[in-house]
């Protein structure tokens, strides 16, 4: 208390300038504590994200159990090669993101910048492939609510309504995921600027680490979307 009292008249910044390194906010005791707090905050946010996507996953599970034939028929209409390629692309971006964290932790600024750019590039490739898939479905009149035409997809007959429902889930789930990717690209842009300015070091890399947590989470969502939408629709028929 005596320290605060003696320096009470000094401006805030001056009082603390010598006491701790600039990256360490003074309401934290140590850098470890600060890092732990950031990580905890991000995980609490990700827990809400799990339930955010979880609502859609639960709804998907219920309707799939109601209308299995329609969902399998819908799954057949997805481009499995594009889905598998996108899974690989996203896993690649997670790898470059993990490498970015490694670079930040070991103080390699150049490698950090390269890894962040690679991560963003792979994110863009993912969105590009996703766009071609959407364009294809639009062309085939498979977009519910906008240009759905069951007769074009199933000339002979068919469980039209439930296939349309499958496509509703497909578009909502993948679009929500793509939105997260776009937000992730925004975060990575900010991280890239910070890295360029040399803001990070072996002592301070929490922003890179927790941005990485977000990026990996979005990857995990896709790891489940890929089998649920593309794979378990009776591909062997």
């Amino acid at each position: 208390m005596s320290e605060t009292a003696s320096s009470g008249l000094l401006p805030h910044a001056e009082r603390h300038h010598e006491a701790h390194p600039p990256e360490l906010r003074h309401h934290f005791e140590t850098e470890e504590q600060q890092h732990e707090t950031s990580t905890l905050g991000m995980w609490v946010f990700l827990a809400t994200e799990i339930l955010f996507f979880g609502g859609l996953f639960t709804a998907y599970t219920i309707y799939r159990s109601f209308y299995l034939p329609g969902f399998e028929a819908g799954s057949h209409l997805l481009n499995i090669k594009a889905g598998a390629a996108n899974t690989a692309v996203l896993i690649g971006s997670s790898f470059t993101m993990a490498s970015a964290v490694h670079a930040a932790q070991t103080g390699k600024r150049k490698m950090l910048i390269i890894c962040l750019i690679l991560t963003m590039l792979l994110g863009c490739v993912f969105l590009g492939i996703k766009y071609t898939e959407y364009a294809e479905h639009w062309h085939e009149h498979q977009v519910p609510g906008l240009n759905w035409d069951g007769a074009a997809t199933f000339p002979n007959s068919a469980p039209n309504g439930s296939v349309e429902l499958f496509f509703c889930f497909y578009f909502f789930m993948t679009a929500l995921h793509a939105t997260h990717m776009i937000i992730g690209l925004g975060i990575m842009t900010v991280m890239l600027i910070f890295s360029w300015k040399g803001r990070f070091s072996e002592k301070y890399f929490s922003p890179i680490e927790i941005s990485g947590l977000y990026w990996h989470f979005v990857d995990i969502v896709w790891i489940f979307l890929f089998p649920l939408l593309y794979l378990i629709g009776g591909r062997y028929h």
């Binding site: 732990e36 990580t39 905890l40 995980w43 609490v44 990700l46 827990a47 809400t48 799990i50 339930l51 979880g54 609502g55 996953f57 639960t58 599970t61 219920i62 159990s65």
Partner: peptide
Amino acid sequence: GLIRIVVLAGFFWLAIMLTFTM
């Protein structure tokens, strides 16, 4: 352990939603 329990909690609540609904 603190981080781990938050991670587990996230998935535990998802499991509640899925299990009870199904």
